[in-house]
Design a binder for these strands. Structure first.
Lengths: 359, 359
DNA sequence: GTTAGCACTCTGGCGGAGAGAGTGCTAACC
DNA sequence: GGTTAGCACTCTCTCCGCCAGAGTGCTAAC
């Protein structure tokens, strides 16, 4: 394959034909012939002329043939070009916007519910695999903490973040602590630490322990013990994957071998996080296609992802993954809108949000 | 196919040969020939003699041929017979017992963690799909309840069951309730209702509301409002499925069509619950093979399941599912042991359990 | 610059041949 | 009478050649 031709040097006709090939291929999943472009395209050229152009486009790296005498298939470069400068960025239909907003209502949902709903919406509306990278709990901002005695020395610790994430954790204390004392400790910790991230809190506690070691009374020692355990939650972000079974309907995955590699890829959460988080910087929707990264090229896959967060504080990424042949014109606005909606939902969750309608 | 021959009328040799066919088939996934039985079996008969017996076994409904001139494959009836009276019920190797016990330790895990771990263990140790039907929250026994103010009129309600299940729920109250009052209400509800199932509590609250409607003061009204919302949790049981991707390695699922039907079946949680709960009554391990039920016969599948619970109170079922050709000798003890271990873990969770070692 | 025409190439389906596996039956053997 | 060797038969699977169909590339004419 020759070097990629600078796309600005493509003539209007070249672009028109390339676009047609891409759109047709996205629909049909089969190599596109010159004849079909000639028939169905708008520029009334014969198949032979189209062929000339298509041969050029192949030479320039935008198309390829599975074999001689087959039609042509877009390359990753073609998709990139398409997305960057040929696509009509339709906005998402009102119906789908509504649907998303109705489902991502804050209501009585906690953060994890929202994550799952978002992942499911992504998958459902794109017919691809939906992926949401959830925030590492340690990076979330504390809203409230609460300790509940459950049995003997066991205490349930509930940590609530301002974005609606709730973490439960059972800890076992040195001695049995009476209920009233736990209440006092809960109040104290909530009042002192609300508004800071769990990581910051952990660090502050550590410093406190060192500095005040000498003059710590029993209650303070207890408090610190509880807090240390309670706040030591998930360093690493989680991943919510939904709709892997949509893959089984795609014609490009008709042999079990590929399906298997695919499923294995989606099971490797750590790797998914890494890839999705490439999209964290910069904001806006990013698209990885084929050769852009190790995983996607191995599997001939694409990833469309965008960060979400509260204010200018990024919390995670969400997006979809699937065979490179996907309806970018629809999916990009979808991912974009979902990112915005989820961000808004998280911001509202426990902000008091007085203007929300009563149910 | 003739009627199933009463299995007690099979001669020792018939049984020996049938057993050999089953064991070989479980290993190889390929129709078993008379020759291989003759060679590898212990009773030193020629292939021709074996053939005679195998023809009988086919006539009686224990074997079948995919086509003439293929070897033979066990039927569901054969598996049943095998399980019922030919299998050596090995106990689970100590190593695996240990592994299960180590992973199902109560420690700081809550009920849902245990469910997930159990499902994963089932899948991992059997190389089949692991399934756990979790208790409907309404059927669990209350250990403690706690309300935490999070923002404005929003209150987080935490319900803890004695078996370690924790349910979080955000509710929006009519008016803002001060923290101290929430604490008092939490204490009151925990003291009055601990030890009863959530369903019972809901019913009692309803009665209280009707009876005392007239003379209810503000606090009691608040309490009841909170309790009603807080205790109105999941009527229906959930399902935790793990290891569906192991299916992709099975030779019987080499075409995507079947894989798809399979995945669709495992996605239909309601149906799974229904099937698994057929195993609820009676206790002990139950095995459904092929024609035993609609789903398994459609997919040529088997289900090995057992109930778990605390005391004589069943809480749910757990088990594995996979192609009928599976290593029952190993899987049945596995499911059995996991049921026992999970039951024990749930019983210990918040019982105070003073004899457990410190971590 | 465009296009009709044609030779060329590659795929996919179909059918026949042949090997291989396994059976069922029969006749001989112990 | 049970057991087994031998053999014919059947069915699958694979390989191969053939052919139609689809699509291309090239050339020559418009």
């Amino acid at each position: 394959m020759a070097d990629l031709k600078d796309y600005t040097r493509l003539t209007a006709r070249d672009r028109e034909i390339l676009k047609d090939v891409i759109l047709t291929y996205i629909l049909s999943a089969e190599p596109v012939s010159s004849r079909s472009v000639s028939k169905h395209g708008k520029l009334g050229l014969s198949a032979a002329s189209i062929r000339n152009v298509m041969a050029d486009l192949e030479e320039w790296g935008y198309l390829m043939q599975p074999h001689t005498s087959a039609g042509r298939v877009p390359t990753a470069a073609a998709y990139h070009l398409f997305i960057q400068s040929m696509m009509e960025t339709r906005t998402l239909p009102v119906k789908e916007r509504r649907y998303i907003q109705d489902n991502l209502k804050v209501g009585s949902a906690d953060g994890d519910d929202l994550m799952e709903t978002a992942s499911h919406l992504l998958s459902e509306l794109s017919s691809q695999v939906g992926i949401v990278v959830t925030p590492a709990m340690g990076e979330t901002v504390l809203k409230a903490v609460d300790f509940v005695p459950v049995a003997g020395r066991k205490v349930l610790c509930v940590v609530v973040s301002s974005t609606g994430f709730i973490d439960n954790k059972v800890i076992e204390t040195e001695e049995e602590i009476p209920r009233e004392e736990l209440v006092r400790i809960s109040n104290y910790l909530t009042e002192s630490f609300a508004g800071q991230t769990l990581r910051e809190i952990r660090e502050r506690l550590l410093r406190m322990m060192v500095e005040e070691k000498a003059q710590m009374d029993r209650v303070l020692a207890l408090t610190i013990e509880l807090a240390r355990h309670g706040f030591s939650v998930g360093e690493s972000p989680g991943v919510v994957v939904d709709g892997t079974s949509t893959l089984l309907h795609k014609p490009e995955l008709s042999d079990v071998q590929r399906v298997r590699r695919m499923f294995e890829a989606f099971a490797d959460k750590a790797r998914l996080v890494k890839i999705l988080n490439q999209c964290l910087q910069g904001g806006g929707v990013r698209v990885l296609i084929g050769e852009d990264c190790e995983l996607t090229s191995e599997l001939e896959f694409s990833v469309v992802a965008t960060p979400y967060g509260v204010g200018d504080r990024p919390l995670g990424t969400l997006g979809i993954a699937g065979p490179s042949r996907m309806d970018y014109e629809k999916i990009i606005p979808l991912v974009c809108f979902l990112g915005e909606t989820l961000s808004r939902a998280l911001a509202e969750t426990f902000s008091g949000d007085p203007d929300r309608d009563r149910r």
